[in-house]
Amino acid sequence: MEKFTSHTGRAVPLRRSNVDTDQIIPAHWLKKVTRNGFEGGLFEAWRKDDAFVLNRPERQGATVLIAGPEFGTGSSREHAVWALQNYGFRAVISSRFADIFRGNSLKNGLLTVILPQETVERLWALVEADPQAEVTVDLEAREVRAEGVNAPFELDENVRWRLLNGLDDISITLQQESDIAAYEASRPAFKPTTTPVG
Protein backbone atom coordinates (compact mmCIF):
# COMPACT_ATOMS: atom_id res chain seq x y z
CA MET A 1 0.00 0.00 0.00
CA GLU A 2 1.12 3.54 -0.78
CA LYS A 3 2.12 5.59 2.27
CA PHE A 4 -0.01 8.55 3.27
CA THR A 5 1.51 11.24 5.46
CA SER A 6 0.16 14.59 4.32
CA HIS A 7 -1.36 15.82 1.10
CA THR A 8 -2.17 19.28 -0.21
CA GLY A 9 -4.25 19.86 -3.31
CA ARG A 10 -7.19 21.60 -4.89
CA ALA A 11 -10.63 20.18 -4.19
CA VAL A 12 -13.87 19.15 -5.88
CA PRO A 13 -17.07 20.00 -3.98
CA LEU A 14 -19.64 17.23 -4.54
CA ARG A 15 -22.90 18.48 -3.05
CA ARG A 16 -24.72 15.17 -3.04
CA SER A 17 -25.67 12.80 -0.25
CA ASN A 18 -25.93 9.00 -0.54
CA VAL A 19 -23.42 8.78 -3.38
CA ASP A 20 -23.53 5.01 -3.86
CA THR A 21 -20.78 2.88 -5.35
CA ASP A 22 -22.90 2.28 -8.47
CA GLN A 23 -22.55 6.04 -9.13
CA ILE A 24 -18.84 6.04 -8.32
CA ILE A 25 -18.18 3.18 -10.74
CA PRO A 26 -21.06 1.54 -12.67
CA ALA A 27 -21.28 -2.26 -12.73
CA HIS A 28 -20.25 -2.72 -16.35
CA TRP A 29 -16.77 -1.45 -15.43
CA LEU A 30 -16.45 -4.27 -12.90
CA LYS A 31 -15.73 -6.81 -15.59
CA LYS A 32 -12.11 -5.67 -15.73
CA VAL A 33 -9.67 -7.99 -13.95
CA THR A 34 -7.05 -5.31 -13.08
CA ARG A 35 -6.76 -2.65 -10.38
CA ASN A 36 -6.16 0.18 -12.85
CA GLY A 37 -7.83 1.84 -15.80
CA PHE A 38 -11.03 2.76 -13.94
CA GLU A 39 -10.64 6.56 -14.17
CA GLY A 40 -12.87 6.77 -17.25
CA GLY A 41 -15.72 5.12 -15.34
CA LEU A 42 -15.60 7.41 -12.30
CA PHE A 43 -19.05 9.02 -11.90
CA GLU A 44 -19.64 7.96 -15.51
CA ALA A 45 -23.34 8.80 -15.74
CA TRP A 46 -22.98 12.25 -14.18
CA ARG A 47 -19.92 13.12 -16.28
CA LYS A 48 -22.08 13.00 -19.41
CA ASP A 49 -23.39 16.37 -18.18
CA ASP A 50 -20.90 19.18 -18.99
CA ALA A 51 -22.10 21.13 -15.98
CA PHE A 52 -21.16 18.31 -13.57
CA VAL A 53 -18.57 19.65 -11.17
CA LEU A 54 -15.89 17.13 -12.16
CA ASN A 55 -16.10 18.36 -15.77
CA ARG A 56 -15.49 22.01 -14.92
CA PRO A 57 -12.13 23.26 -16.28
CA GLU A 58 -11.26 24.81 -12.91
CA ARG A 59 -11.55 21.41 -11.21
CA GLN A 60 -9.05 19.63 -13.44
CA GLY A 61 -6.10 18.29 -11.46
CA ALA A 62 -7.96 18.49 -8.14
CA THR A 63 -6.99 15.71 -5.71
CA VAL A 64 -9.32 16.10 -2.73
CA LEU A 65 -13.03 15.20 -3.00
CA ILE A 66 -15.40 16.88 -0.56
CA ALA A 67 -18.67 14.91 -0.59
CA GLY A 68 -22.07 14.90 1.11
CA PRO A 69 -23.06 12.46 3.87
CA GLU A 70 -23.34 8.66 3.40
CA PHE A 71 -20.63 8.57 0.74
CA GLY A 72 -19.90 5.11 -0.71
CA THR A 73 -23.09 3.28 0.23
CA GLY A 74 -24.12 0.07 -1.50
CA SER A 75 -21.91 -2.54 -3.08
CA SER A 76 -18.60 -3.75 -1.62
CA ARG A 77 -16.78 -3.11 -4.92
CA GLU A 78 -13.24 -1.98 -4.17
CA HIS A 79 -13.26 -0.75 -7.79
CA ALA A 80 -14.91 2.40 -6.38
CA VAL A 81 -11.73 3.17 -4.45
CA TRP A 82 -9.51 2.28 -7.39
CA ALA A 83 -11.58 4.54 -9.70
CA LEU A 84 -11.14 7.51 -7.35
CA GLN A 85 -7.40 6.82 -7.06
CA ASN A 86 -6.93 6.15 -10.77
CA TYR A 87 -8.59 9.51 -11.47
CA GLY A 88 -6.11 11.22 -9.15
CA PHE A 89 -7.91 11.63 -5.84
CA ARG A 90 -5.76 11.14 -2.72
CA ALA A 91 -8.37 11.92 -0.07
CA VAL A 92 -12.16 12.12 0.36
CA ILE A 93 -13.82 14.26 3.03
CA SER A 94 -17.40 13.60 4.19
CA SER A 95 -19.45 13.71 7.38
CA ARG A 96 -20.35 10.01 7.01
CA PHE A 97 -18.97 7.12 4.97
CA ALA A 98 -20.46 3.69 4.38
CA ASP A 99 -18.51 1.06 6.34
CA ILE A 100 -17.30 -1.21 3.55
CA PHE A 101 -16.22 1.67 1.31
CA ARG A 102 -14.32 3.24 4.19
CA GLY A 103 -12.54 -0.01 5.00
CA ASN A 104 -11.62 -0.49 1.36
CA SER A 105 -10.29 3.06 1.04
CA LEU A 106 -8.01 2.79 4.06
CA LYS A 107 -6.60 -0.52 2.82
CA ASN A 108 -5.59 1.19 -0.43
CA GLY A 109 -4.12 4.42 0.93
CA LEU A 110 -7.05 6.60 -0.12
CA LEU A 111 -7.55 8.65 3.04
CA THR A 112 -11.21 9.06 3.97
CA VAL A 113 -11.63 11.83 6.52
CA ILE A 114 -14.74 12.29 8.64
CA LEU A 115 -15.51 15.92 9.52
CA PRO A 116 -18.69 17.44 10.97
CA GLN A 117 -21.22 18.44 8.28
CA GLU A 118 -20.80 22.11 9.25
CA THR A 119 -17.07 21.90 8.48
CA VAL A 120 -17.86 20.17 5.18
CA GLU A 121 -20.21 23.09 4.40
CA ARG A 122 -17.45 25.60 5.15
CA LEU A 123 -15.02 23.72 2.90
CA TRP A 124 -17.66 23.60 0.14
CA ALA A 125 -18.20 27.36 0.41
CA LEU A 126 -14.46 28.00 0.38
CA VAL A 127 -13.59 25.90 -2.66
CA GLU A 128 -16.70 26.99 -4.58
CA ALA A 129 -15.77 30.65 -4.04
CA ASP A 130 -12.13 30.02 -4.92
CA PRO A 131 -11.45 26.95 -7.07
CA GLN A 132 -7.72 27.52 -6.60
CA ALA A 133 -8.03 27.20 -2.81
CA GLU A 134 -5.86 24.40 -1.49
CA VAL A 135 -6.89 21.89 1.12
CA THR A 136 -4.33 20.04 3.22
CA VAL A 137 -5.14 16.65 4.67
CA ASP A 138 -2.45 15.99 7.27
CA LEU A 139 -2.48 12.47 8.67
CA GLU A 140 0.53 13.07 10.95
CA ALA A 141 -1.17 16.01 12.65
CA ARG A 142 -4.64 14.47 12.12
CA GLU A 143 -6.10 17.70 10.80
CA VAL A 144 -7.56 19.25 7.69
CA ARG A 145 -6.35 22.76 6.92
CA ALA A 146 -7.58 25.33 4.43
CA GLU A 147 -8.00 29.08 4.50
CA GLY A 148 -10.03 29.82 7.64
CA VAL A 149 -10.40 26.12 8.45
CA ASN A 150 -8.35 24.12 10.89
CA ALA A 151 -10.29 20.97 11.65
CA PRO A 152 -8.95 18.02 13.68
CA PHE A 153 -10.19 14.54 12.73
CA GLU A 154 -10.24 11.15 14.40
CA LEU A 155 -8.74 8.00 12.96
CA ASP A 156 -8.10 4.68 14.63
CA GLU A 157 -4.46 4.69 15.77
CA ASN A 158 -3.71 1.27 14.32
CA VAL A 159 -5.12 2.25 10.91
CA ARG A 160 -3.16 5.51 11.03
CA TRP A 161 0.07 3.65 11.78
CA ARG A 162 -0.49 1.32 8.84
CA LEU A 163 -1.21 4.24 6.50
CA LEU A 164 1.73 6.36 7.65
CA ASN A 165 4.06 3.44 7.04
CA GLY A 166 2.35 1.98 3.97
CA LEU A 167 2.14 -1.44 5.66
CA ASP A 168 0.65 -4.52 4.05
CA ASP A 169 -2.06 -6.12 6.21
CA ILE A 170 -1.36 -9.65 5.05
CA SER A 171 2.31 -9.51 6.02
CA ILE A 172 1.36 -8.27 9.48
CA THR A 173 -1.21 -11.04 9.94
CA LEU A 174 1.17 -13.75 8.74
CA GLN A 175 3.43 -12.82 11.65
CA GLN A 176 0.64 -14.28 13.82
CA GLU A 177 0.66 -17.59 11.93
CA SER A 178 1.17 -19.67 15.09
CA ASP A 179 -1.96 -18.11 16.62
CA ILE A 180 -3.94 -18.99 13.49
CA ALA A 181 -2.66 -22.57 13.53
CA ALA A 182 -3.51 -22.92 17.23
CA TYR A 183 -7.03 -21.64 16.60
CA GLU A 184 -7.49 -24.03 13.69
CA ALA A 185 -6.48 -26.97 15.85
CA SER A 186 -9.21 -26.08 18.35
CA ARG A 187 -12.13 -25.81 15.89
CA PRO A 188 -15.00 -28.25 16.51
CA ALA A 189 -15.38 -31.20 14.12
CA PHE A 190 -18.93 -30.22 13.16
CA LYS A 191 -17.85 -27.03 11.38
CA PRO A 192 -18.65 -27.18 7.65
CA THR A 193 -16.10 -27.81 4.91
CA THR A 194 -16.43 -27.54 1.15
CA THR A 195 -15.91 -30.44 -1.24
CA PRO A 196 -12.23 -30.72 -2.12
CA VAL A 197 -11.17 -30.43 -5.74
CA GLY A 198 -10.02 -33.57 -7.55
Binding site: S76, R77, V81, I100, G103, N104, D169
Partner: peptide, 9 residues
Protein backbone atom coordinates in the same frame (compact mmCIF):
# COMPACT_ATOMS: atom_id res chain seq x y z
CA UNK B 1 -19.35 -8.26 2.70
CA UNK B 2 -15.70 -7.42 2.15
CA UNK B 3 -13.59 -5.65 -0.48
CA UNK B 4 -11.06 -7.26 -2.75
CA UNK B 5 -8.08 -6.46 -0.47
CA UNK B 6 -9.87 -8.37 2.27
CA UNK B 7 -10.70 -11.22 -0.13
CA UNK B 8 -6.95 -11.56 -0.71
CA UNK B 9 -6.35 -11.38 3.05
Amino acid sequence: GIGTSQVEH
